[in-house]
């Protein structure tokens, strides 16, 4: 039985029993390379739910995107490892009531990066994608090619330390991966850090120079839920309106620090970016820093205090004490 069919059965059951009023998951959309969020309220429609490597959206985002929809309702939500952490982080931050949510964990094989998938098809349009596990089949007009999953995996999923959702109410599929060592996850951070300052600056300008300020990264991010984001204030105005580095960097760096200790590195921001900014690198850098300093990661324990909202006497304080 595939995870997809288990998910459909589970959603159908939870809805018909009345355990939940709504199940958020994924369904096929217009594009074969990306499943789209699904909102199922009728058990009859549970059959549209799917799960595979194209389910890259983090459904946790919907809890804070439109609060009218979710407050006080029992909601079932299909979650990958990172998605579960995002929900738990929201619980920790008093944005979601844990008892109102049924976390339907899905053992995650890692999600695909649609840009890498497109590159693997050499620019030809992909009309059909079949996630076979270790391999991914791509088919279009006059071609069919099978690529290794590893080669088309999202950066966020390379070396993912928590692929299997924890603290969930139900777990579908067989947890199949050992937690990866931190090494692979940190590799690109270390490479970046090893660059001389001028090289880091150049790489930063190159990446963030692609930004068009559409805020797709912020808006798909479950951790970004300020009622009024600082970029949306105009009295006072904190940030200019251009795509010059002073403006784009202020947006990205502030967002980056604002989600420090809260970002679960799901990579939804990077996958959402229409111009392909490598957004994950800095989020990862901060997560690595947080882990080193506080020995904690976001969204691991809904009962804990948020990392940035707690203080221990034995924390490193060299920035004050010198």
């Amino acid at each position: 039985m595939t995870i997809g069919s288990e998910l459909r059965d589970t959603a159908r059951r939870l809805l018909s029993e009345g355990t939940v009023e709504l199940v958020i998951g994924w369904r096929r959309g217009s594009r074969p390379t990306a499943a789209v969020p699904a909102f199922v309220t009728d058990p009859e429609e549970a059959g549209s739910l799917v799960f595979d490597g194209t389910c890259g959206t983090n459904p946790a985002v919907y809890f804070t995107r439109d609060r009218r929809q979710y407050s006080g309702r029992k909601v079932g939500v299909a979650v990958k490892g990172c998605d579960a952490r995002a929900v738990l982080q929201l619980v920790m931050e008093n944005q979601v009531v844990r008892d109102d949510v049924v976390l339907i964990g899905v053992a995650c094989p890692g999600v695909l990066d649609r840009r890498r998938v497109a590159l693997a098809a050499c620019g030809r349009e992909i009309l059909e994608l079949e996630d076979r596990g270790a391999e991914v089949m791509l088919r279009g007009a006059g071609f069919e090619t099978v690529v290794r999953r590893e080669d088309v995996l999202s950066d966020s999923c390379r070396g993912c330390p928590h692929p299997d959702p924890g603290s969930v109410d139900l777990l579908l599929g067989t947890p199949r991966r050992e937690a990866a060592s931190g090494e692979e996850r940190e590799r690109r951070v270390r490479e970046f850090e090893a660059l001389p300052p001028a090289g880091r600056w150049e790489a930063t300008l190159r990446e963030y120079g692609k930004c068009i300020r559409c805020y797709a990264c912020r808006n798909v991010c479950p951790a970004c839920y300020c009622e009024t984001c600082f970029v949306d204030q105009n009295d006072p105005r904190w940030i200019g309106g251009t795509c010059e580095p002073t403006d784009t960097l202020i947006f990205h760096l502030i967002r980056n620090l604002h989600v420090a200790g809260r970002c679960v590195e799901c990579g939804a921001c990077a996958r959402a970016c229409p111009t392909g900014v490598d957004l994950l690198l800095l989020h990862r850098k901060v997560a690595v820093e947080v882990l080193e300093r506080f020995r904690e990661e976001a969204g691991m324990d809904a009962g804990a205090r948020p990392i940035m909202a707690s203080f221990r006497e034995d924390e490193r304080q060299e920035f004050i004490m010198g």
């Binding site: 300020r213 559409c214 959402a272």
Partner: peptide, 25 residues
């Protein structure tokens, strides 16, 4: 229902060849 999945970013309007709303600052 139509709007339910939308996360309110500007990826669509910014990549559109015809959307032309602007702000002046």
């Amino acid at each position: 229902g139509i709007a339910a999945p939308c996360v309110q970013c500007g990826a669509c309007t910014f990549s559109c060849p015809t959307c032309h709303c602007f702000d002046i600052q």
